[in-house]
């Protein structure tokens, strides 16, 4: 299933398709983010911790634009918040 579109590529090149994929990339990333962020059964406490843990991620991203560092800071913040709240 992952392989076939890579072979069909030649039949799908077009301006419409290029624009479609640009938009699809943002939509998919948003979808992946939302589904990773919200868990079911819904737990308000867990969502609070996650939301707070994303603050250093945002700060780090806008300050240094470093993906790895931002992710590690997020994980550390989540761990610390889980321990003390």
């Amino acid at each position: 299933m992952r392989f076939l579109p890579l072979i069909w590529k030649k039949k799908t090149d077009s301006a419409f398709f290029g624009e479609f994929l640009d938009h699809a990339a943002s939509a998919l990333l948003a979808a992946l983010f939302v589904t990773a962020f919200v868990e079911f059964p819904f737990q308000a406490h867990s969502l609070e911790i996650k939301s707070l843990a994303l603050l250093p991620v945002l700060f780090s991203y806008f300050r240094w634009k470093n993906l790895g560092l931002s992710v590690v800071l997020g994980v550390l913040a989540h761990f610390i918040l889980s321990q003390f709240t």
Binding site: A30, K50, A53, S70, L73, G74
Partner: peptide, 22 residues
């Protein structure tokens, strides 16, 4: 707790990749 924090890493990963596309 440590394992659940590590599992959380995918959320900031997707967020940081989403931001520049906005």
């Amino acid at each position: 707790l440590f394992v659940s924090s590590l599992l959380f890493s995918l959320t900031p990963l997707f967020l940081v990749l989403l931001l520049p596309t906005l």
